[in-house]
Design a binder for these strands. Structure first.
Length: 731
RNA sequence: GCCACCGUAGCUCAGUGGUAGAGCAGCGCUUUUGUAAAGCGCGGGUCGAAGGUUCAAAUCCUUUCGGUGGCUCCA
């Protein structure tokens, strides 16, 4: 006699076990009609689930109360849609397509499958698949769940010859994976005799298509309003690149065709905001294959944006007591052996640069490539002893040590700026009275990203960080973290960026890989959490996400397509000072280890500007715009006056262009609007006579009227100096 | 790196075995214009690169370079 508690805390009693559907019916017929599934004690279940004991139950539909798409409802719809797509693909390509794994995702769903040799799936099949999916949805077959005892289910799957499903079942039953890891076939765990496997038929079991599946699903295929296959990709079984390569088919589904259409429309809109498209159109940057993949050439327009950002950030840093430094883009290998970057991160670094004479000598000696690598990665006895003594651990094992005359020296394109900054700190003695020492550099670093990971400006191989290293006492750590975050807050606020979140990376509770004392870690972690809490944006604490050398704070923003990009980071580091043997003299007249804080709150100018382009859709505030004003003479007769106006603006330090072509004014306005110039000054004989300019501001599709040139200059100078987000100058 | 798709004029794209095209941009001429494209004309491409099949290749095949999307959220 279950008592059901509904989300509004009201209860309903039943004298028999009930299904979710019956509960919905008891609430109202329209809810029963709209119901897709239910949540029993917080767990998403089929509508047909029988509830025998008291429980709190929520009925899931495709919309929440405020008419927004319901996340759980979409999950159910997309989970079922994955089955429908798999059935459609098997109908189109054949039953010998082996299905592996097909879950819902944030924006849809995918299904991984093995396309048998000799067959292939391409976008040419999409029309056929979409049509077949529409048919299955129109047929509105019930989603029928049935359970089979584990042993029977396994036998059934094995006889069907799909090793991926057998593997899924074994994992679900907690058995060792006989297929994936090659463990012995072990029918049913003795400890779990009642275990069962569940299957879902898209219709009648035995008659219609079916799949091993945990569920839950919507009650019938008709409840998937609209589904569509989207794209193809490849994936690996279990994400393991040594395992089978599968074809991943992406699709998406919504409760109605209108919502699917809206989603497709939004994808198109997002494409129009893509920083690569806008960047090309507005000539902000260029990537040239002759220069290299992932290497950004900042063209004049983009360079203005970058320079303005550097000036802005640089000014804020000076206010906070940072000191500017400049260091080269390369350094000797020993430096990176000391820091620990080489060779441990060699997969993500450019290969070392070896001096020509050394290479020629090695070549004469017949040195092999493997031998060269070995000799580059080895260290001298002196370096080994120094590092091992300082860290108190055997971090350089004897195998890596080589006599000096065999070692090969070289340079590395720097993957990080910290070694150079550590060396600057070490170049002079420091008293505790000097701390914190804050060394800032817009430092360019180089990392070897896999070619498939590269993406416009947001994922590149050479980039300039807004980097700084703060060397301080353990007591100063909280205040310094606060300082970093207040900087982030100022800059995000200035740019009108509200859509960001913060991740605080903490120790794994039982991890042993960490360096530094427990007391320092506790304090630093608390400082990070406290600082994040003051930001006033959502932040998450993520145990296990700390670096081995200290806790960190990451800033993540979402781009228009919903992809998240990590921008900056603040990391506390107890390790660097040890490795580089940094010290300051304390009040006790004894040397002490400083704590280092790495911080690059915006990550890199490349990624940050890429995100900014999408954030503003190319319509930058006046202070960032490559061209702030464009003067448009009505006809050639006004060209002289236009040139005088432009001269005055330029003299006032504003970035001005002039469109003196023989186009009509309509054409000049259109071009300036497409290039997203903040202000157009339209000047004709009337203006020349009165010394005025006719103002048109971006985003307002009309003539705002005339004002004196002096008043315009003053107003725009103020807007730029205050770095306002909006265009505020008006006659 | 791996998989799918793509690469034609500065840009956006059409052309699927038979003499390389359009619009925009550029240049010239006409027009002298008051707020989202005036008209006419001209120039511009070894069709990403290399090799192959063919009487004939932008088009078909192979290789290669580059771009785009994707490469777990564990039934």
């Amino acid at each position: 006699m279950p008592i059901i508690t509904l989300p509004d805390k009201s209860t309903k009693s039943f004298d028999h076990p009930v299904t979710g559907l019956e509960i919905a019916q008891a609430i109202g017929p329209r809810l029963a009609q709209a119901a897709l599934g239910c949540k029993v004690n917080g767990e998403l279940r089929d509508l047909s689930t029988l509830i025998e004991a008291d429980a709190s139950v929520a009925i899931i539909t495709d919309k929440t109360r405020d008419k927004q798409p319901d996340k759980d409802g979409l999950f159910l719809i997309r989970h079922t849609a994955a089955h429908i797509m798999a059935e459609a693909i098997q109908d189109v390509l054949g039953k010998d397509v082996l299905l592996a794994y097909g879950p819902p995702t944030d924006t849809g769903f995918f299904y991984d499958m093995l396309i048998p040799a000799g067959k292939s799936l391409s976008t040419d099949h999409f029309d056929a698949i979409n049509q077949r999916m529409a048919q299955i949805i129109a047929e509105n077959r019930p989603m029928t769940r049935y359970e089979v005892p584990a042993a029977d289910g396994l036998a059934k799957l094995r006889s069907e010859g799909n090793k991926y499903k057998v593997d899924n079942a074994e994992r679900a039953l907690g058995l060792p994976s006989s297929v994936y890891t090659g463990a012995k076939q072990n029918d049913v765990a003795p400890a779990n005799p009642g275990a069962a496997l569940t299957f879902y038929a898209t219709g009648q079991p035995g008659k219609h298509w079916e799949d091993l599946c945990r569920g839950p699903h919507v009650p019938g295929t008709g409840r998937v309003g609209a589904a569509r296959v989207m794209s193809l990709a490849s994936s690996y079984w279990h994400g393991d690149e040594n395992s089978d390569r599968l074809t991943r088919v992406y699709g998406t589904a919504f409760a109605s065709q209108a919502e699917l259409d809206a989603h497709l429309h939004q994808l198109q809109e997002a494409k129009a905001r893509d920083h690569r498209v806008i960047g090309k159109h507005l000539r902000l940057f260029h990537i040239d294959e002759d220069v290299g993949q992932g290497l950004i050439l900042w063209t004049p327009n983009g360079s203005i944006i970058r320079q303005e950002l550097m000036d802005f950030i640089g000014g804020e840093l000076r206010k906070q007591g940072y000191q500017q430094v400049f260091t080269p883009h390369i350094g000797r290998l020993d430096l990176y052996k000391t820091s620990g970057h080489f060779p441990y991160y060699k997969e993500s670094q450019f290969a070392p640069v070896v001096e020509r004479e050394a290479l020629e000598r090695l070549s004469r000696e017949g040195c092999s490539c493997a031998e060269l690598t070995h000799r580059l990665e080895a260290v001298s006895t002196r370096l080994q002893r120094g590092l091992n003594e300082r860290t108190g651990k055997n971090i350089i094992p004897d195998e890596r040590v080589m006599p000096d005359d065999l070692l090969v020296d070289g340079f590395m394109l720097r993957p990080m700026n910290c070694p150079h900054h550590a060396k600057i700190f070490k170049s002079a003695p420091h008293s505790y009275r000097d701390l914190p020492v804050r060394l800032a550099e817009f430092g360019t670093v180089y990392r070897w990203e896999q070619s498939g990971e590269l993406n416009g400006m947001t994922r590149v191989r050479g980039f300039t960080q807004d980097d700084a290293h703060l060397f301080c006492t353990p007591e100063q750590v909280p205040a310094e973290i606060q300082g970093c975050l207040s900087l982030v807050k100022v800059i995000f606020a200035t740019l009108g960026m509200k859509e960001y979140r913060v991740r605080v990376g903490l120790r794994d509770p039982d991890g042993k890989k960490y360096t530094g004392t427990k007391e320092n870690w506790d304090k630093a972690e608390q400082a990070c959490i406290d600082a994040a809490a003051t930001l006033g944006v959502t932040f998450s604490q993520e145990p296990g996400e700390a670096a081995f050398y200290g806790p960190k704070i990451d800033f993540v923003v979402k781009d228009v397509i919903g992809r998240e990009w990590q921008l900056g980071t603040v990391q506390v580091d107890y390790n660097m000072a040890i490795r580089f043997d940094l010290s300051y003299i304390g009040p006790d007249n004894q040397p002490h280890r400083p704590v280092a804080i790495h911080r690059a709150p915006f990550g890199s100018f490349e990624r940050f500007v890429g995100v900014l382009i999408e954030h503003f859709a190319g319509a930058f505030p006046a202070w960032l715009s490559p061209q702030q004003v464009r003067v448009l003479p009505i006809s050639e007769k006004s060209n002289d006056y236009a040139a005088r106006v432009a001269g005055v603006l330029r003299g006032a330090g504003l970035r001005v262009g002039i469109d003196a072509g023989d186009d009509r004014i309509q054409a000049k306005v259109k071009v300036a609007a497409e290039e997203k110039v903040p202000y157009m000054l339209i000047v004709g004989p009337r203006d020349a006579e009165s010394g005025t300019v006719s103002v048109r501001a971006r985003g307002i599709e009309k003539d705002l009227g005339a004002m004196s040139l002096e008043a315009f200059v003053e107003a725009l100078r103020r807007e730029v100096a205050e770095r306002r987000c909006e265009l505020t100058v008006r006659p």
